[in-house]
């Protein structure tokens, strides 16, 4: 039970009221899902007057026993992960290039990188994948990888640039004062610090990238969402709901795991000062500049404050 600076510890009356509200809320949500289940399970009559079995009817789920189905979903998951991994590595490389260009000492390099970056960031990933597919006639795999890598690279590049910019100026000056060239100062002193500081944002962006691999659907790359529609074509459209549920479940498992890993890694190696102050003792007058974390997660400020 977390407490927050925003409200008092609940007294007996508040606790009772809160319990009632919670119970009502849970009942409403459960009722909603039961209604949803019943509506989905009910047989439907189509336009021709023929009765169709409900969504949970065994005749819609018998493909679950089919090994080919799981093989295709396995391959689809693999294809999704493969594309995500290749695009992630490329995106980080492109991001580093972008941030290097943006902090160049030559104005024209900065300007060109800026324009390219604006362009890449401003158009939909879907359009970019489509563009690479049609214009460079890259195969569906590479158009997906390149489209995703360019777009996410631009975002990672911006994050890295912001990270470099937020460093104290003394870091750069120290590099110069020991005789490093601007490039070496950037590569040896500024970039490593910025990368570490921006790691949470970069990892969050990689989760987005994993989700966006579903957009390679448009170029018929056989990833997970394409697998759903391929299987629909193969097994018949009455299995659509079943296939959708399976696909959704796989996506949720993949993405929630990735998000969790990203969060874990961010907590371990993210910026120390960005953390919401749990272990540091309170210094009078110094708290005002610190970030506040409202009660959401167990590790947040919530537990530290009371």
């Amino acid at each position: 039970m977390s407490l927050s600076v925003l409200y008092d510890a609940p007294g007996p009356r508040t606790k009772r009221w809160s319990l009632i509200a919670s119970t009502v809320g849970v009942i409403l949500i459960v009722a909603f899902f039961v209604w949803m289940y019943l509506t989905l399970a009910a047989p439907r009559v189509n336009a021709n007057g023929a009765e169709l079995p409900g969504m949970f009817d065994p005749s819609r789920w018998d493909i679950v026993a089919n090994g080919d189905l799981w093989l295709s979903f396995g391959l689809g998951t693999l294809a999704t992960l493969q594309m995500a991994a290749a695009a992630a590595i490329l995106a980080i490389a492109i991001g580093i290039l972008f941030s290097f260009g943006r902090s160049s000492q030559f104005a024209w390099v900065r300007a060109i990188t800026g324009v390219v970056l604006e362009f890449v960031r401003g158009i939909p990933v879907l359009l970019m994948i489509f563009f690479v597919f049609l214009v460079f006639t890259a195969g569906s795999y590479w158009s997906g990888v390149i489209g995703l890598a360019l777009y996410n690279g631009a975002i990672i590049g911006e994050a890295l640039r912001a990270g470099v910019k937020s460093l104290p100026r003394g870091q750069r000056e120290a590099g110069f004062s020991i005789g490093l060239s601007p490039v070496r100062t950037w590569a040896l002193i500024e970039f490593p610090q910025a990368f570490r500081q921006m790691l949470p944002i970069i990892l969050a962006q990689l989760v987005v990238l994993l989700k966006d691999t579903s957009l390679a659907f448009i170029v018929s790359y056989p990833e997970l969402s394409r697998t759903i529609s391929n299987n629909r074509n193969f097994f018949g459209s009455r299995y659509m709901f079943t296939l959708f549920v399976i696909g959704l479940a796989i996506y949720l498992v993949l993405n929630l795991t990735m998000s969790w890993i990203a969060r874990f890694a961010a907590r371990r190696s993210g910026p120390r000062f960005g953390r919401a102050l749990p272990n540091t003792p309170k210094q009078p007058g110094a708290d005002g500049t610190r970030a506040i974390t409202l009660p959401t997660r167990k590790d947040g400020l919530a537990d530290a404050l009371h």
Partner: peptide, 16 residues
């Protein structure tokens, strides 16, 4: 909702 691709959210809307 943050961990489901938009494509699948729209598929849910169009299908379910």
């Amino acid at each position: 909702l943050r961990n489901v691709p938009l494509l699948l959210v729209l598929m849910f809307c169009a299908l379910v």
